[in-house]
Amino acid sequence: MKKHVIILLFAVVLLPSCMNEPAMQPNTYQGNFEALWQIIDTKYCYLDYKHINWDSIRTAYKPRVDTIKNEYAFLDLMGSMLFELKDGHVNLFSDFNETRYWKWFQDYPANFSSSLIYNNRYLGDNYLIAGGFQYAKIDNGHIGYMYYEDFMNAFSDSNIAYMMKYFDQCKGLIIDVRDNGGGSLDYSKQLASYFFKVETVTGYMRHKTGDGHSDFSSPVEIRTPASKNIQWQRPVVVLTNRMSFSATNDFVNRMKQSPLGIIVGDKTGGGGGLPLSSELPNGWLVRFSSSPMYNADMQSTEWGIDPDVKVSLNATDEANGYDTIIERAITLIK
């Protein structure tokens, strides 16, 4: 009995040591550098996938921290280090600025001009607006055209039902998600559901389970349901460019599996890693890709999704008021 009591007391005293919170780095330039480096080292999901030697990056940047004179320079230096990840989902937010990597679209042709889609051949002046969509009939009423610029814009089944009714005499539908930088994955799923007849596995997701660069959970299926209320049964063309990123990338990935969907335009910008956030001792917020997403063939979508039909904006067409990518979509539907 006495032995049992001693063991119990021993356990009670020792076990809490398993529950000590991890030590925080001090709020100094070096401490914040270490904290940021460790967050990326243990939580960022693409270090191995992108063949990034994060240890050597630490070696390269750490000595430069000692030369830092103020917060602005420190943010710039940390931004440069994060730049090495080549990830649009990685940002460092301070109270005065935020770092960002934009080369995923800046180094590519825009393939989108808002002045073109608002000319009378497309949306014109009298387009309709519902649930974040701007929509109109184009090509003499034969084609439905919807421009959706932000997956943060909420829409409902009712919004979509009215749009589908408005387009009920059209031969096909164009959904333009060019320059749509993403937003909610729920809206991505909901929008895609109108173009599926049966629930379909359209991708997979994993998350980091340990500090190792390749410590991941088993893949979890990402399913796209078929909407019970609304079904579009004719061709649907999704227009993409490099600024189709994040949740838009997810939408395009889903639509790749739609039996009615055709992807037209440029390769999407990617952003296949669902980002999470953490904080540094100085209170800055870091956003980073945490959960990699894959297509139905377990291929990463981080670097973007190739269109079914690659089309670029033609300068001559643009000068004449034509959007080459929309025109190609019209031809494909016809």
């Binding site: 998350h207 980091k208 959970s217 979890v220 299926e221 990402i222 669902l274 999470l276 945490s290």
Partner: peptide
């Protein structure tokens, strides 16, 4: 919650 996983994965994807 799962360390490193989003609530989207836990509640929306059911992991």
């Amino acid at each position: 919650p799962l360390n490193g996983a989003s609530y989207y994965e836990m509640f929306e994807l059911g992991n």
